Simulated assay, not measured.
Amino acid sequence: MSVVPFAIDIPPAAIADLHSRLDMARWPEKEPVDDWSQGTPLMALQELVVHWRDGYDWYACQQMLNDWGMFETEIDGVMIRFLHVRSPREGARPLVMTHGWPGSILEFRRCIAPLTRPEKHGGTAADAFHLVIPCLPGYGFSGKPAVTGWGVQKIAQAWGELMARLGYDSWFAQGGDWGSIVTTMIGAMPVPGCKGIHLNMPMAAPSAEDMAAPEPADLKALAALKHYQDWDSGYSKEQSTRPQTVGYGLVDSPVGLAGWIYEKMWAWTDHHGAPEDALSRDDMLDNIMLYWLTASGASSARLYWESFGAITGVQIDIPVAASAFPKEIIPAPRKWFERTCKQLVYWGELEKGGHFAAWEQPEAFVKELRAAFSLMG
C-alpha cells in the first residue's frame, strides 16, 4: 500500500548498447513510392536515426522526469510508476491523466506547468490541478503484468486505488487514445471518487438512423472510419491478435521500433507533410525511448489483446466533457457521443490538432480542460 519516490537512472551502458544497435542496423531498400503510403519512408527514418545516434540526449529527458517527481506503488502485483506534480494551491483539484499507445506520460509535458501553476500561464487560481500521470501497466517505467486480465476495466479500478492511496477522495480524470478508453471506463463503472471526466478522443458508434440518413458530420466520421479500417489499422490487428510475435522485433531492434512508432506520428498528427511539423524530433525520440529503454514493445501491445473494442455500448452517468480535435483518427460527431452520456456538460470543437492533443496543442488543450472542469465543481 506504500507510495514511495522512484528515480529514473539509465546507465550509460544502455545508451552505448542502443548506439551499437543503430550502427549495426540492416536497412531494407527504398520504397517504390514517393509518399508514406507503404509506411515510414526509408530516408525519413534514416534521418531520424542519425539524429537519435549523434544529436539526441536522453539524459535531458531523464532529468526532466526526475525533477517533476516520479513515484511508485504496487497494485495487484504490478508496480505502477507515475508522475505526481502537486500545485502550490492547496485547493487545487486532483486530476489523473492517462496516455495511450504509442504515446507516454511525456504527451503531457507542456501542460504540467499551466495546469499546476495556472496564474503563471494565463489562468487563475481556480484553474489549478494536482496532477497524477501514470505509465499504463506494461508501458514506460510501470511494471509488466505477468498474468492476463489487465484490461481497461482493471486499469480503471487501479487508478481509483492509486488516487485513494494518494489521499484524494474526490478527483477528476482525463485521457486520449487508450487513456480515453480507460477514462471512459472510470466514468462508466463508475470508479468511486471520480466526479467527472474529460476525453480528447470521444468514441461512439452511429445509430441505424445515422446510417440511413447521414448528415455531413456522419459522412465525415464514416469516411474516417473506413480509411482507418482500410489503411491505418494494421498495427492494431497485429497487436490485438499477436502482440508477442510483433514484440520480438520491437524489443530487439531500435530501428524497427522507431519505424513502427514514427509512422503513427505522421498518420495521427495535424501537420503539413512531415511529423516534425507537429512534434519536435527530440520530443518524438524521448517518447520512443520510453518504449526502447524499458523493452515494452510487447507488453504495451498486449493492451490491444486485452481490451480492443472494450467500450462498445457503455453508458456514463457522471459529468462528461469532450474536446474534438480536427485530425483525430476517428472523429465521433457530438450526436453520436452524447447518446453515451447522461450529463454531457461540455463539448469543444477545435480548429487545429490531431490525435496527440496535449502534445500537439498544449495551450488549446489546457484551455479545454479549464473550461470543461469549471463546469463540474
Score class of each variant (00 low, 15 high):
residue 176 G to T: 08
residue 176 G to K: 11
residue 177 D to A: 10
residue 177 D to M: 15
residue 181 I to S: 10
residue 181 I to A: 15
residue 182 V to F: 12
residue 182 V to E: 13
residue 182 V to I: 15
residue 184 T to W: 13
residue 185 M to V: 09
residue 185 M to H: 14
residue 186 I to E: 04
residue 186 I to N: 07
residue 187 G to H: 08
residue 187 G to F: 10
residue 189 M to C: 02
residue 189 M to V: 12
residue 190 P to H: 12
residue 191 V to L: 03
residue 192 P to K: 05
residue 192 P to Q: 01
residue 192 P to F: 02
residue 193 G to E: 10
residue 193 G to I: 09
residue 194 C to N: 06
residue 194 C to A: 12
residue 195 K to G: 15
residue 196 G to H: 11
residue 196 G to E: 09
residue 197 I to Q: 02
residue 197 I to R: 11
residue 197 I to M: 06
residue 198 H to Q: 13
residue 200 N to M: 06
residue 200 N to V: 01
residue 201 M to W: 10
residue 202 P to C: 06
residue 202 P to D: 09
residue 203 M to A: 12
residue 203 M to I: 15
residue 204 A to F: 04
residue 204 A to T: 04
residue 205 A to I: 03
residue 206 P to K: 05
residue 206 P to E: 05
residue 210 D to V: 04
residue 210 D to S: 03
residue 210 D to A: 02
residue 211 M to F: 04
residue 213 A to M: 01
residue 213 A to G: 00
residue 213 A to E: 07
residue 213 A to D: 04
residue 213 A to P: 00
residue 215 E to R: 12
residue 216 P to T: 06
residue 216 P to N: 08
residue 216 P to F: 02
residue 216 P to S: 05
residue 218 D to E: 04
residue 218 D to K: 02
residue 219 L to F: 01
residue 219 L to W: 01
residue 222 L to K: 05
residue 223 A to P: 01
residue 223 A to S: 07
residue 223 A to Y: 09
residue 224 A to K: 11
residue 224 A to N: 07
residue 225 L to K: 13
residue 226 K to H: 13
residue 227 H to R: 15
residue 227 H to M: 06
residue 228 Y to F: 15
residue 229 Q to V: 02
residue 229 Q to W: 05
residue 233 S to D: 03
residue 234 G to K: 03
residue 235 Y to F: 15
residue 235 Y to C: 09
residue 235 Y to K: 07
residue 237 K to L: 13
residue 237 K to S: 14
residue 237 K to G: 14
residue 237 K to D: 15
residue 237 K to M: 11
residue 237 K to T: 08
residue 239 Q to E: 09
residue 239 Q to F: 11
residue 243 P to H: 07
residue 244 Q to C: 06
residue 244 Q to S: 06
residue 244 Q to V: 00
residue 245 T to Q: 03
residue 245 T to P: 01
residue 246 V to S: 01
residue 246 V to D: 05
residue 246 V to C: 03
residue 249 G to I: 02
residue 249 G to V: 10
residue 250 L to A: 14
residue 251 V to R: 15
residue 251 V to T: 09
residue 252 D to L: 09
residue 254 P to S: 10
residue 256 G to N: 10
residue 256 G to F: 03
residue 256 G to P: 04
residue 257 L to V: 03
residue 259 G to K: 08
residue 260 W to R: 04
residue 260 W to P: 00
residue 260 W to K: 00
residue 260 W to F: 14
residue 261 I to G: 04
residue 261 I to W: 08
residue 261 I to E: 01
residue 262 Y to K: 03
residue 262 Y to F: 13
residue 262 Y to V: 00
residue 263 E to K: 01
residue 264 K to Y: 03
residue 265 M to L: 15
residue 265 M to C: 11
residue 265 M to D: 11
residue 267 A to Y: 03
residue 268 W to Y: 14
residue 269 T to K: 14
residue 269 T to S: 13
residue 270 D to C: 10
residue 271 H to Y: 02
residue 271 H to R: 00
residue 272 H to T: 12
residue 272 H to F: 11
residue 273 G to L: 01
residue 273 G to Y: 00
